[in-house]
């Protein structure tokens, strides 16, 4: 922050912070800490996955054949692309280019929606076959007594991830409204930055989920 800033340039600084820099650093640290909690939250599911896979290695290779690698692969590319557009949205916000930032946020939401639509087709296809989570599981195509547990883990992991994608869509939509109103500039783009951090984590979790669930041989 330069000292010659007009008073309005500091209007975003909340009263309990000394300056804009302290506010930005705090927000960023807070978001990183929140991401740590997210990693541990999903970490519990990853542990459940590891335990059940260690006990039933054959189940995982069998059951994974029911997952559509092509759809999962497309979704992986879509999410990686959305991370790029999100990063660009932050960059344009830093460069004071609200218009391009707005469109990049829009592209991110579009990619997230594509992801959810593909996920929807994957889920409905499985429901059609009787692959439901838990006791509702009726599929007979996998010859293993614990096949339903694999899909319970699958639905828990992808379902919670999907909820995070939906939350991301909501947050980015809110950023678009704020961007349209000219709330962000090179001096103040904290919400764009920290939402970006969140979105990258959502992306990263999927990058772990995809090989662990779909690509088992």
């Amino acid at each position: 922050m330069s000292h010659t800033d007009s008073m309005s340039a500091n209007a975003h600084v909340q009263h309990h912070f000394v300056d804009s820099e302290q506010q930005f650093d705090s927000a960023k640290l807070g978001m990183w800490l929140f991401l740590v909690t997210e990693v541990l939250f999903f970490g519990g599911l990853f542990v459940a996955y590891i335990v059940y896979r260690a006990w039933n290695p054959e189940l995982f290779t069998l059951a994974a054949t029911q997952l559509d690698t092509v759809m999962g692969g497309i979704n992986t590319l879509v999410l990686i692309g959305s991370s790029l557009t999100m990063a660009l949205a932050i960059r344009y916000a830093q460069l004071n280019d609200a218009k391009k930032s707005f469109w990049m946020l829009g592209a991110t939401i579009a990619a997230a929606l594509v992801f959810m639509v593909i996920k929807y087709f994957e889920y409905t296809h499985k429901f059609h076959l009787g692959i439901f989570p838990g006791e509702a599981y009726t599929f007979t195509g996998i010859d293993h007594p614990k096949a339903h547990i694999f899909f319970s883990i699958y639905y828990m992991m992808t379902g919670l991830h999907g909820i995070h994608v939906l939350i991301g869509i909501g947050l980015i939509g809110w950023l678009m409204v704020k961007t349209k109103r000219g709330a962000f500039s090179a001096e103040y783009y904290t919400p764009v930055e920290i939402t970006g951090l969140y979105w990258h984590l959502v992306d990263l979790i999927w990058i772990f989920l995809f090989p662990l669930l779909y690509l088992i041989d």
Binding site: A48, Y52, P133, G134, E135, A136, P145, K146, H148, I149, S152, I153, Y155, M156
Partner: peptide, 12 residues
């Protein structure tokens, strides 16, 4: 849902 991760009756 009876996901069966913790319930021994369901293989958990």
């Amino acid at each position: 849902l009876g996901i069966g991760i913790f319930d021994p009756a369901l293989g958990g």
